[in-house]
Design a protein around this nucleic acid. Structure first.
Length: 518
RNA sequence: GGCUCGGUAGCUCAGCUGGUUAGAGCACGGGAUUCAUAACCCCGGGGUCGGGAGUUCAAGUCUCCCCCGAGCCA
């Protein structure tokens, strides 16, 4: 069955909770989504890449109080830190939405009205043990005396209040149907988890809190504010608004809903794959088309965290290693979806081997030969054509890359490009132009070989554009070319201009050498 | 406690519906080479595929039990 392709490919990172400054996990998610967004753009699709911050809830209010700040001040600070982080890493997001945006509040109200009109809002009494850090009720028995949150190791708080409930239970069948679609929840391993949960029977969940000033007021329900999770995900829709658009739900939806893909950490899969689609259905809005829950990062085998003091500061990492190196390491070495372990030695090995030695040196050595023997791109009588082994290799790499990006298999996509560079290096040693050039009768052959390898290197640069935008641009610049912008045109074999002069090469990436731990 | 997913070379992992001497990258050792960021290219060592039993002509690959780890739900 052919799916109708919407005009806009909307994809999102989570809206990061402003409880604390950005950590490496958020960077990881965002880098992955950035890569996918760049890939889609290179493939000629219109992309709407959304990220932002989720800023309401009791946890934020308390964190602000502890710092003697107004919640809004606190949110501004952290939110700015996120925006600055993305700018520093060169993230190509089209939107940065904050759930404290005035227009967001209006959309939440409109959304709520729709859900209420549908008869999906009821009053109920919520009793139980609550973890503020999770912003979640736990299943501990009411008779427990002083339970702790198993995740946060902090005391749970007893709550007994009147809340508004969303009648999630009404959507049991529809949610089951939705998540049974093969590609709705990925990776598949996590789908079973959600299926299990849903099979257990969906229960209505409370969507409001009383006595919580730091939240969006529930229209028509005086003292209630929305539970963070009810308003947060709507940020994906608010984000679609153009700067001059009115705060109107339908206008926003027309700008690019449904989202094609929500990329999130595995911990919030249920909210995105169950609660959120049901809320959309209730409001008469199409649910998102897919949710991908990736794994978590550890560091040298250990969980990262304040308590262990082994967190990896993203800004420091960026300063020391650079965005290219970190992007390469995280996306090339960790299967997206699985948990991954960050190891400093491994990072150095891979970055130095793959980027500096294999790809960087390929460019360097090839340009050096071209300059030395041909004063630029060689101009053989017969240009290597699209049947040249390297041309075939490049075409194959490109096809596989498409496939792998489609599966969010960044690791494989990275290896596709790397393989092409390895093939080019292998071709050089096989042809040994440095020997052949000594024989005047072989000048023509050398010209052909160098042209083929230079052209392959160009394609390596083009294919790298989504994964390593900066390094790709630096590589192409040394071939006298602009950054890759359109794969349709730029992936064809044979675009290097014969006879074009080449500047003296400079390493596109210095080998990393770290004396101290990151 | 129930369920799910893992346990394959020193490290990180591929191995689809069972079928030639179990693979890759990194690390390590050796060789070749000089165009190049002491880079590139080639070769090699190393694994009783968590343990045990079973099914089969044939099992990392299927079944059962056990051990270990992670997760989801209670």
């Amino acid at each position: 069955m052919a799916k109708i392709r919407p005009m806009t490919f909307t994809l999102t990172t989570p809206l990061y909770y402003v409880n604390d400054r950005p950590h490496i996990g958020s960077v990881y998610t965002t880098l992955a989504v950035d890569t996918l967004a760049r890939f889609k753009r290179l493939r000629g699709e219109k992309v709407m890449f959304i990220t932002g911050c989720d800023e309401h809830g009791q946890k934020i209010q308390r964190t602000a109080e502890l710092a003697s700040l107004e919640p809004q001040q606190h949110c501004d600070t952290i939110s700015d830190a996120y925006a600055a982080t993305w700018a520093a890493w060169g993230i190509s997001n089209d939107r940065f939405i904050r759930t404290t945006d005035p227009r967001h509040k209006l959309l939440v109200a409109q959304f709520f009205e729709r859900v209420q009109a549908k008869g999906d809002i009821v009053e109920g009494r919520q009793q139980g043990w609550y973890c503020v850090a999770c912003e979640e009720y736990k299943d501990d028995a009411a008779s427990a005396t002083a339970p702790d949150c198993p995740i946060h190791q902090r005391p749970l708080e007893w709550r007994d209040e009147l809340n508004l409930f969303f009648r999630l239970s009404r959507y049991q069948a529809e949610i089951e149907a939705l998540i049974s679609q093969a590609d709705f929840i990925r990776p598949a391993s996590r789908r079973h988890e959600v299926e299990n949960f849903v099979q257990g029977g969906l229960k209505d969940f409370s969507i409001s809190r009383i006595n919580l000033p730091w939240g969006i007021p529930v229209p028509g329900h005086g003292e209630h504010t929305f539970y963070v999770w009810f308003d947060a995900l709507l940020g994906y829709i608010t984000a679609l608004l153009e700067p001059d658009d009115p705060a109107d739900l339908d206008v926003a939806l027309a700008r690019g809903w449904p989202a094609q893909l929500h990329v999130i950490g595995k911990d919030i899969l249920r909210f995105h794959a169950v609660y959120w689609p049901a809320m959309c259905m209730s409001a008469g809005i199409e649910p998102p088309q897919a949710v991908f829950g990736h794994g978590f990062l550890t560091r040298e085998g250990q969980k990262m965290g304040k308590s262990l003091g082994n967190s990896l500061d993203p800004m420091r990492l960026l300063d020391i290693c650079g965005a290219d190196a970190v992007r390469w390491y995280l996306l090339r070495d960790i299967q997206f979806g699985d948990d991954g372990d960050i190891q400093q030695q491994r990072l150095l090995d891979l970055v130095n081997n793959d980027l500096a030695n294999t790809i960087g040196n390929l460019l360097n050595r090839t340009i050096a030969m071209a300059r030395k023997w041909f004063e630029g791109v060689p101009n053989p009588l017969q240009l290597p054509d699209s049947q040249h082994p390297l041309a075939l290799g490049a075409a194959a790499a490109s096809a596989q890359l498409d496939d792998h990006y489609g599966q969010l298999a960044f690791q494989r996509a990275a290896q596709d490009v790397l393989q092409l560079a390895i093939a080019a290096n292998g071709y050089l040693s096989e042809r040994a132009p440095w020997t052949a050039i000594k024989d005047p009768a072989k000048q023509e052959q050398v010209a052909e070989d160098i042209y083929a390898v230079l052209e392959t290197t160009r394609l390596v640069g083009v294919l790298l554009a989504a994964l390593l935008p900066d390094l790709s641009a630096r590589l192409l610049a040394q071939l006298g070319l602009p950054p890759a912008s359109d794969w349709q045109g730029q992936l064809h074999w044979g675009q290097l201009l014969p006879g074009q002069p080449l500047e003296e090469p400079t390493p596109i990436l210095q080998r990393l050498e770290l004396e101290e731990p990151l």
